[in-house]
Nucleic acid binder design. Structure first.
Lengths: 149, 149
DNA sequence: ATCTCAGATGCGTCGCATTCGCAAAAAACA
DNA sequence: TGTTTTTTGCGAATGCGACGCATCTGAGAT
């Protein structure tokens, strides 16, 4: 009978709660988009998200993905990044802030956090007479090669 | 008759050397664009650069500014940044690396450098098995307001 | 279960920043 | 000065993202 909602029942519930909390409607497209988002541990851009979403439900439009992603960002559910290239990439807001190591050879993204760097940033801002609104630290890296490859 | 090339003769020479070095032709537009660039201590975007350039020579097209700026970036003469907003902003590559504090209220950019943060970044990269290719640290800030203005 | 309607969607279009193609103009060089 | 190759200007094209509008739909009221 019901849909295939078996193991991700709690996930579904979370999405439902989320919508209710923000006064949003729990629509088919939204359900799927949010689903895809929480299944994505990487940092997909909107077109990639749309690809994944339409693999599940081909009628969902790119515009809706854009709108949903913006909505969720406004609500603080998603974070937007722009690594070098022009396009925006998203990740579900982590409970703990982190920065990114980007492998320039593979495009892979590794998350890290340094309390020490954070503290130094605060210090620098204060020293200049500012408070930090947000920040962005991206380290573009290349694997340490040992001898031969 | 002659141009106004009086005090910046050495600059002109630098530009000429630069072109020769890279096998580029020393053209009128290039001369002016490079001129404007070295006279700019802020971080102008391409449209702003074009504005400044056309104030000197109105026939220079936006496309040429884009092309020149890309060329100089490839050659390592310029650095490109993208602070939040969509457009790219440029600065002549500084001899000493620095990062940026961006005042979100005014859009103003302040440069800073922290040897300590640099060192921590190295450490983090190494710990993950990488070497740093480049990095980017932007701190978005707001002025500390004291009691009343 | 049905009605109602504000909110959501799909589609096509628009705007902005940037790039491209091509013919004309300008450097470098003989 | 003539020849060759690079640059330029112009306008059109691209890519990302946002928007307007007619249509559709979720979810509370009936």
């Amino acid at each position: 009978m019901g849909e295939a909602g078996q193991e991700n029942q709690n996930l579904e519930r979370n999405i439902a709660d989320l919508c209710r909390e923000f006064g949003l409607r729990l629509t088919g497209p939204r359900r799927i988009i949010m689903q895809v988002l929480s299944d994505s541990s990487d940092h997909p851009d909107v077109v990639e998200l749309h690809r994944r979403v339409t693999a599940i439900e081909p009628t969902i439009s790119l515009a809706t993905v854009y709108r949903t992603v913006n909505l969720l960002r406004e609500k603080g559910v998603l974070e937007r990044h722009t690594f070098g290239d022009g396009r925006a990439r998203y990740e579900t807001t982590p409970r703990e802030h982190h920065d990114h190591l980007i492998d320039v050879e593979t495009g892979g993204v590794i998350e890290f956090h340094s309390e020490e760097i954070e503290r130094l940033q605060e210090e620098i801002a204060r020293k200049h007479g500012f408070t930090i609104v947000s920040h962005r630290l991206e380290i573009y890296v290349r694997p340490l090669k040992r001898s031969r490859t």
